[in-house]
Design a protein around this nucleic acid. Structure first.
Length: 272
DNA sequence: ATCCAGGCAGATG
DNA sequence: CATCTGCATGGA
């Protein structure tokens, strides 16, 4: 139950998992374990290939997005300077094809929070509320979340976001996600921002990571600082519109390269 | 002790 | 429309 991906420079498991798009993974030595919804995958780095081991091989072949040609995208982004440095630094990043409801709940938790704590909150939620699998817990379903109350998620450490998690889940559990996927990006952003705890930035992360809308450019505190010299102190919202227009369909990729680059230079390795 | 972390909601000009 | 403030929590 496994497959090999050769190290040809177009994919790197460390960069892909550490670039901030996913929170539910672990690293032990040269082995990564990733969880998506109710599924698990172990990735071992070998001399000249990555070995993927899972009971859901096809799911993770799609999850890790091996059908996108990242060389072409990188060549199409012709910026010099900062962007090209960021691409060189993170050229093995793939944008994952994640479970949409997991992304929504995870990024509600992410707001005004740090990655280490986001991961801990999500892990506790899975242990207490997720379906028990063989040796791990699934991400909680929207229905399971909706049955709990605000106090429960406060006890998970979610802070003031506890009520956002419950109330958004209670709305989302009756939503047809196939219908959401058929909406335009602007329509889908408008719907997402109507949910409690979801503003422009969280919505853009959900659009990119949960619905693969690569024409959005999420602007968080790191990205905002990276562009303040050039664009000044607009708000994050205006900056997101300007950058999405500038980079078009490549926005999401450029954003990930930049985020990973800037954050890696400023965050110690222990803070993960 | 103050600031910051993948910001948002609500109140007020 | 824009700007301002409070907010849970924990690490630096």
């Amino acid at each position: 139950m496994g497959f090999l991906v050769p190290k040809d420079g177009t994919f790197d498991v460390f960069q892909t998992l550490e670039c901030g798009q996913v929170f539910r993974y672990q690293k032990q030595g040269d082995c990564f374990t990733v969880f998506s919804h109710d599924k698990k995958c172990e990735i071992t780095e070998q001399k000249d290939s990555f070995y993927f081991h899972s009971n859901n091989e096809n799911y993770f072949k799609n999850y890790f997005d091996f059908d996108t040609n990242y060389d072409i995208i990188q060549n199409n982004v012709q910026d010099k300077g900062l962007i090209s440095s960021a691409i060189e630094f993170g050229k093995g990043i793939h944008i994952l094809n994640q479970n949409a409801s997991e992304v929504i709940i995870s990024f509600i938790i992410s707001s005004n929070n740090n990655i280490k704590r986001i991961k801990a909150i999500i892990e506790r939620m899975c242990c207490h509320l997720g379906e028990k699998k063989d040796g791990y817990f699934a991400f909680p379903t929207l229905s399971a979340i909706a049955e709990k109350d605000e106090k429960f998620f406060s006890e998970m450490g979610a802070g003031y976001r506890a009520k956002y998690i419950v109330n958004s889940a209670r709305e989302l559990k009756i939503v047809n996600f196939d219908a959401l996927k058929s909406l335009s990006t602007d329509e889908l952003r408008q719907y997402l921002t109507s949910l409690p705890g979801i503003g422009r930035k969280v919505a853009d992360c959900i659009l990119l990571f949960g619905f693969r809308r690569t024409e959005v450019f999420p602007v968080d505190t790191w990205i905002e600082k990276a562009f303040q010299d050039e664009l000044g102190s607009l708000g994050a919202d205006k900056m997101a519109k300007i950058l999405a227009k500038r980079y078009g369909e490549n926005s999401g990729y450029v954003q990930q390269w930049l985020y990973f680059y800037k954050r890696s230079l400023n965050v110690s390795r222990r803070d993960r």
